[in-house]
Amino acid sequence: MALVDGINGAVKRLPSWPLYLLGAVPVVWLFWQGLTGGLGVDPTKVIEHKLGLWGLWLLIAGLAITPLQRFAGLRLIKFRRAIGLLAFFYILTHLLVWLVLDVQIPAQIWADILKRPYITIGMAAFLMMLPLAITSNNWSLRKLGPVRWRGLHKLTYLLVPLGAVHFVMVVKGWQMEPLYYLAVVIALLALRLRPSRRRRAAAA
C-alpha cells in the first residue's frame, strides 16, 4: 500500500499537460524516420500500422484507469482526459495517413468505407470518438452536466472494442497479437460489470 500511496502522492503533484507534448514525440519521430529511410522499404504501411497500434494502446490505457482505481487504489484519473485526447489524435493521424499517403484516391476511399467491413467498423469507431474529443474540456462538462456528459462518454465502451475488432479483421489469417488486444479490452470492460451502485448503497 505504501507504493500505491507514494504513486498517488506523486500524481497529485504532477501536472497533466506535459502528456500532450510527450505524446507528440513518437509521432514526429515516426514521420521523421519515414522520410529519412529509417522504417524500411514500405514506410507508409509502417506509419499507418504503428499509429493505429499506439492509438489502441492509449485507448486501452484510458479504459484501465477506472479498474486500477477500484481494484488497486491507484488514482490516475487526472491523466485520463490527456490519454483519451491523445488516443483521438493518434487515430485521426492513422486515418489521415491511410487517406492521403496510402489509398490516395478519394473515390476509392468512399467505396472502401462502404464496401469493406473492417474499414466500416474502424470508421464507425472513429466517428464515435469525435463527440468525445470535442467534449473533452471543462466548458463542455459544465454545459452538459455530469450525468449527460458521463452518458455520452460511455460510447468508449463501444468504440474501443470496435477498434480492437478492426485490428483483428485487418490482419491475414488468425494472428494472435490482435486477439490478445481484444481479450484485454473485453477483460477491462468485464471488470466494470461489478455491481458498484449496490455496494455504494450498502456502504451508505
Partner: peptide, 22 residues
C-alpha cells in the same frame, strides 16, 4: 476483381518512399 478487404485496382511500389504515387 477486388480483395474483399481492399481494392486491387492499384498498387504501392516498394521503395518509392512515403510520398510515392500508387
Amino acid at each position: 476483381v477486388d480483395h474483399p478487404r481492399w481494392s486491387q485496382a492499384s498498387e504501392r511500389v516498394i521503395g518509392g518512399g512515403i510520398l510515392a504515387k500508387r
